[in-house]
Design a binder for these strands. Structure first.
Lengths: 219, 219
DNA sequence: TCGCTTTTGTTGAAAATTCAACAGACTTTC
DNA sequence: GAAAGTCTGTTGAATTTTCAACAAAAGCGA
């Protein structure tokens, strides 16, 4: 666990909590460290969500597959981000998504009970933790909001450009990488892969952008 | 304010808080009561979000209008539901949506500062309030999730049926009303109104449902 | 009730998406 | 280094959506 302290300190869940406090807090929270090989399930649809996860290493995907087998990517989560807190906090009985390791990864699982119910010990920073969780959940909400802004667009081009402009702004540069390959980007934007490739080519020809693999540059 | 106590008690923000506690809590939170005529703005895009709102009477809409003037309805909120808490808690500098009165309505506005920072007085229920806000935000997250499930569908028919099946399940009946007229429903599902009308007619002819005004019955 | 406005349904044409199939480039594995 | 597999881009046909225009129906106020 101690190896991951620097990453844990960067996690939004533990922001403004010092190292020594963090150690006692972790003790009190009683998390479990788990490693998942690429492609394996961290949580599966239908599970009862009781824990939140913190990605310590690698990257995971939140996905959902409908009745017809169409995959939709809800989000990509990498270290030191948090996932699953929404469903656990909302106390739903059944997880509506799949959580899968996109690469080999290491995850810290923490029961939300432990987070929401301050321990009797002198964890003076537990309130800070709850405050952080609150902000984290609200921030997650904003992410959904952004995704809705994308999927509300009607054409592949608008969806793509909305996404690219957001990502450029996030990364503070006109040249940036996206965490998806073409198929995954299509699943995230909720469009057809071949149509997406065609649209990217068109934008390239029009001189709007360059794209090689997962690096895009807006011109 | 006292007139609205019964509604406030039903609000998810104040669940499991007794009437006397609620009164002192309200005093401590220092909310302001506001009335909005139909069609007027409660919050406007670009505002700095500092307050959450509780709908005491009437109904509001969370909408977003893009560059081209396409309106998208994010959610309909009616008494005794809460709105705006996400943006205020996430401390974003600028509200990305419009909040508008869909009918004449009455709203209680509360600064989130007051909610997140427990007062020094003996507000023993302030922790409960924060816990409620936490659950509320997580629940709001689920709503977004549901909307994403709808907009991730590719055809108008699938979007509509996904929405109707969800709503039927929510209301526990095959016959139910939706809070939108046709144009609003189209804006919520992110599809073309005339195409939506056409699809509803088709489903009617196929004997899948009946629809008159905003009442739908799945057969 | 009459007239006016809003809402809903219908239609055809234009535009866009999806789907399936394939070829070339690139990776990985043995 | 060859073979197998994966990823990306391309294309044409079928399907679907969007758009614009209009008519019928419903709601509203005088």
């Amino acid at each position: 666990m101690k190896n991951y302290l620097p990453i844990l300190q960067k996690s939004p869940l533990f922001s403004d909590i010092g190292e020594t406090e963090l150690l006692s807090l972790l003790d009190c929270l009683g998390g479990t460290l788990r490693a998942y090989p690429k492609g394996t399930a961290v949580f599966s649809e239908g599970d009862r969500p009781t824990h939140l996860g913190i990605v310590l290493d690698g990257e995971i995907r939140i996905t959902r597959t409908d009745y017809y087998g169409n995959r939709s990517i809800v989000a990509a989560v990498k270290a030191p981000q948090v996932f699953g807190e929404t469903f656990a906090c909302a106390e739903v009985e059944s997880l509506p998504v799949d959580v899968t390791a996109a690469t080999d990864c290491t995850v810290l699982l923490i029961g939300v009970d432990r987070v929401l119910n301050p321990c009797c010990n002198s964890c003076s920073f537990h309130n800070r933790l709850i405050y952080n969780l609150m902000k984290q959940t609200a921030a997650k909400n904003l992410l959904f909001h952004r995704k809705l802004e994308i999927t509300s667009k009607r054409t592949t081009r608008d969806k793509l450009m909305t996404y690219l402009l957001m990502t450029a702004k996030d990364q503070g540069s006109n040249s940036f990488t996206v965490p998806y390959d073409r198929q995954e980007l299509a699943d995230y934007l909720e469009v057809d892969r071949s149509g997406l490739s065609a649209e990217i080519s068109k934008l390239r020809r029009e001189g709007v952008l360059t794209a090689e693999k997962n690096r895009f540059t807006l011109l």
